[in-house]
Design a protein around this nucleic acid. Structure first.
Lengths: 207, 207
DNA sequence: GTCTATATCCAGATAGAC
DNA sequence: GTCTATCTGGATATAGAC
């Protein structure tokens, strides 16, 4: 919009996205403090100083990544809750969607890794910690609440719903971890297999 | 042995252990690079310089922790393999033992966390990476091999054994993560629940 | 064995030219 | 918008006194 067409300079948003993408790769692989701004600049192909034209600090990039991740995840969670299907199928869909994302999109896996690391880390910016504690809680609560509903239906296993939610996310985090380590060769387990953790009755596949 | 009894100075081994213990706590919570040698010294209650009397560098401490962890895990794996019980029960025992350790011993959980982080990290010393790649492979192989044996018995689920091993360790890693985040309040899921992931036939508990 | 300097390096962030 | 140069702080590791 109103921009000189022959300049090959990137627009502000493009550059920010480039920086965020490169940073996700680096932060998830090395952690916040082992990632140098120089590394980010090099990955994008710009000078180190230029990074500060787009973000106030390295931590600001980190926070932006975390915030973006939660926005997407919470959006998906809200959509899931709104669906007119039975709780058991919501769990199946959530699991399936997350797994599919993990397999098809390395960045999705890296994002999960980043969130896990951030949750467990004492060495993240205060703003990030605040964000995490609040938003993470929501994600667990959504799953726990679906679990409870599924238990009333008699479809889902009759155990503490919060623990089931923990198991749900543990599994996702654990698999995201392997996805990143293994790279493209990663094969996700079939959703039906993971559903065994949560279903009251396991459907018999053979015969 | 032949040491002056009235000195309250620590023996070399005691100090090394103190440093290792404090470092496990810090490395697992902040990562290698965000942990300052000053932090370690402060946690132990000694001067920063003294740390270098016991270890050549920060990374040397890190490597010692990783190596120690694998020694213990591989020891347990070898014992497990040697047991005269059916494969299905070996899996149950491995799961139960790891879980019990996780719950009762925060350091065990932190050790798992450290190994996970190290596996996924590009920012670890070369010596540590070499170690990891070799030893980690062994741990997965042990579980995969037990899975295969259990499949021949018809006890364990008929899926790719390597994938089952990944699922096995994913679950442990995911739960170790939660254990560390949640602290002492953490409750592990019952082993029987996790066994649902691997058993061909799920025993019916109620009725 | 332990501590207090301190040398050295390196990374984050800023300034100013183009 | 982009780069190069630089300021500044902080962390690793060493040296040397006690």
């Amino acid at each position: 919009m109103g921009r000189n067409p022959e300049k090959n300079q990137k627009t502000r948003e493009d550059r920010r996205t480039q920086i965020l993408t490169a940073s996700l790769r680096l932060f998830s692989a090395r952690g916040l403090s082992a990632t140098k701004v120089t590394d980010i600049a090099a990955a994008v192909g710009i000078s180190q100083g230029l990074v500060y034209h787009y973000f106030g600090s390295k931590e600001e990039i980190y926070i932006a990544l975390i915030a973006g991740a939660f926005e997407r995840l919470n959006g998906a969670a809200r959509e899931l809750e709104a669906l007119a299907i039975v709780p058991r199928d919501k769990i199946k869909m959530a699991l399936g969607g997350l797994l599919k994302d993990l397999v098809e999109n390395e960045d999705a896996a890296r994002t999960q890794l980043l969130l896990s690391q951030a949750t467990a880390s004492e060495a993240i910016p205060d703003a990030a910690r605040k964000l995490m504690e609040r938003e993470n809680r929501k994600l667990y609560a959504v799953i726990a609440s679906i679990m409870r509903a599924g238990q009333e239906d008699g479809d889902l296993l009759d155990h503490d719903a919060d623990q089931l939610a923990i198991l749900f996310w543990s599994t996702i985090k654990g698999l995201a971890f392997h996805r990143v380590v293994q790279g493209a060769g990663f094969k996700a387990p079939p959703v039906a297999m993971l559903m065994r953790l949560f279903l009251e009755e396991i459907p018999r596949p053979h015969g």
